[in-house]
Amino acid sequence: MKQIGVKGIFFRAWDWLAPPAILFCMVILCWHAVTVAFKVPKYLVPSPLSVAQTMYERGGDLSHALRLTGTAALLGFLCSLIVGFVVALAFSQSALIRRSCYPYAIFLQTVPIVAIAPLIITWFGYGFHSVVIVSFMISLFPIITNTSTGLITVDARFLELFAIYHSSRWQVLWKLRVPNCVPFLIAGAKTSSGLSVIGAIVGEFFVGVSSDWRGLGHYISDASGNMNTTLLFAAVLNCTLLGLSVFVLVNVLGYVVLRRWNNPGRGT
């Protein structure tokens, strides 16, 4: 019976992985065919083969860049989780705080990050701090809105249940509102995880070429300046990989945490 179980898991993984993998191969093949057949110049669209070659040759630089960008993005993401949660807690506790601060939270969301990134760099310097702060700012808003929603929209009957036992505000917050907001927080974190990578790369664009901070954004802007499209493709591919892995990480963590909330297995 156990063997069937393992096999089942294998086939399920296969069901999930095979279609995108096959599609990937087909796209790469078409791409390659098009670049060869129409003799597309390298600076317009490099062939997948030359991108792979560049990735291999510049592997050291790119993996270092991946590490730098990844660190900044993760740090920005973590900060946005913590700050976003604390802000949402404050919002949930007072309608006055909520009303007075919410417009500015929206402002944070609507102001183009590209427009204020240079300012941030002026304030925090050409390097790590600025990159983290840009990443943090861009990923903060989804956490605030989702978590506040989770903290505020609590079933009225649960509130009555707590009121029956003369619960303190503190008890309602920690035993009802906070557990209630966890699925919302995770939904927000999924959105923010992708945004944090975008933020880190945008930050790196502005930090500039002269800086010591050579993340993926640096290579993208450098490669695009030099018409080194192959390197550009390689860097973009790395960005995608980074975003994907952060997203997968958050999803797996979310799945583990949410087992209690959704469809839990039999208790221990």
């Binding site: 009555e160 557990p179 966890v182």
Partner: peptide, 9 residues
Amino acid sequence: FQDATLLPW
């Protein structure tokens, strides 16, 4: 209550 109103978590 009308529903069991148990905390799902």
